[in-house]
Design a protein around this nucleic acid. Sequence first.
DNA 1: GCGATATGCAACCGTGTGATTGCAGTCGAG
DNA 2: CTCGACTGCAATCACACGGTTGCATATCGC
Lengths: 104, 104
Amino acid sequence: MTDTLVDVCAALGDSTRWSILTALGEGDASASSLATRLPVSRQAIAKHLAVLERVGLVEPVRVGRELRYRVLGSELSATARRLDAVGAAWERRLAAIKEIAEDM
Amino acid sequence: MTDTLVDVCAALGDSTRWSILTALGEGDASASSLATRLPVSRQAIAKHLAVLERVGLVEPVRVGRELRYRVLGSELSATARRLDAVGAAWERRLAAIKEIAEDM
DNA sequence: GCGATATGCAACCGTGTGATTGCAGTCGAG
DNA sequence: CTCGACTGCAATCACACGGTTGCATATCGC
């Protein structure tokens, strides 16, 4: 059910991946160019990009021999909405409990 | 700043923890009572609850000798809003790029 | 008080994963 | 055509983490 939701959250639960995402937030970039700015190897970044691509947070774009990546804010916003829906449901339950308590 | 954000996402990036959260969504429960419904040991659940409590997704409630946990939808919605803000920023950048491209 | 139930703590284990290095292949620029 | 740069794949390593078992401790009910 919430199968991909946990995957997206797991992908977002890594600080190195957030470094990559925020770097991509300022402009598309390839794994190699990211490796010059970030304190990790190119291959590590490539693996992270593969993870981010599999959950749809990032999209590959060929530019000549380079393979740049573009961050997809729409996917992030979509997961945000899904999380908010769940949180809202839980809050409704709490509010109902509280109302019952006040009736006594 | 986004320090706790990654922690919350990491906490949400585990299917067992989602099982616990959804179970708690139907009513407060202790680690022991959860262990009867879920296919994991009580101690494993206790560890997960500790993780969830540290990021504020869950709150302990003493009931006699029991220690029940209550799910906090407000925290989840708060993180959802933070994620949406980031996603919206990324989308704005893409929209700006697209506009520039169309001007040429 | 006594037994049953609930929690807490500690040690341990297997595996998943973040990260590295090395090498081979590919493709654009000069 | 050749050189340099970018990508892809494989092997390896260390550590964190999910999970378990065992035992000690507290506390409610009878």
